[in-house]
Simulated scan of single mutants.
Amino acid sequence: MNVVLGQVVYSKAGRDTGKIFIITEIIDTDYVYISDGDLRRVENPKKKKIKHLVITKDINDIIVQKISSDIRITNADIRKSLAEFKNSNIKDD
């Protein structure tokens, strides 16, 4: 499974099952760090196995630009992008 920074994912295993996150760092081929800007903040991201995630096709360009430019991502940025993702999926249904 190919994952990229700024990609929206859902957890499919663990206590956070069903919650939505954004990939903030790729550790290796098996692990990533994910954050939701609320319970899992940017300062303390969750280390998660990729196989325990449902990968979506949605990639947040603002988050990707900030990460690639070494600009600090804020928890508000994460929350805002996840809210936009949720709202766009509600309209599509």
Rank of each mutant, 00 (worst) to 15 (best):
K66I: 05
T56E: 13
L39T: 12
D58S: 11
D70T: 01
I59Q: 07
N87L: 14
I26P: 01
R79M: 02
V4C: 00
I63V: 10
S68I: 11
K49V: 12
G14N: 05
T29F: 13
G14L: 11
H52A: 08
S68T: 14
I59D: 07
I73G: 04
K12I: 03
E25N: 13
G37L: 07
N44M: 13
T17W: 01
I63A: 00
I26K: 07
K47R: 14
S88C: 08
K48I: 13
L5Y: 01
D92R: 02
I71A: 01
K80R: 08
E25C: 00
D70F: 10
T24M: 14
I27C: 11
Y10E: 06
D38V: 07
K19M: 05
R72Y: 04
I59H: 02
D28Q: 06
I71L: 01
L82Q: 00
K80N: 11
A83F: 10
D16A: 03
Y10W: 07
A13D: 11
D93H: 02
K86N: 05
I62S: 03
T74H: 03
I71E: 10
G14Q: 05
Q7K: 14
K48G: 05
I34Q: 01
K12C: 01
I63P: 00
I22H: 03
G6Q: 12
D77M: 12
S81P: 00
V54C: 11
N89I: 01
D93T: 02
D70K: 09
T56R: 00
D30T: 14
D28E: 03
I59A: 10
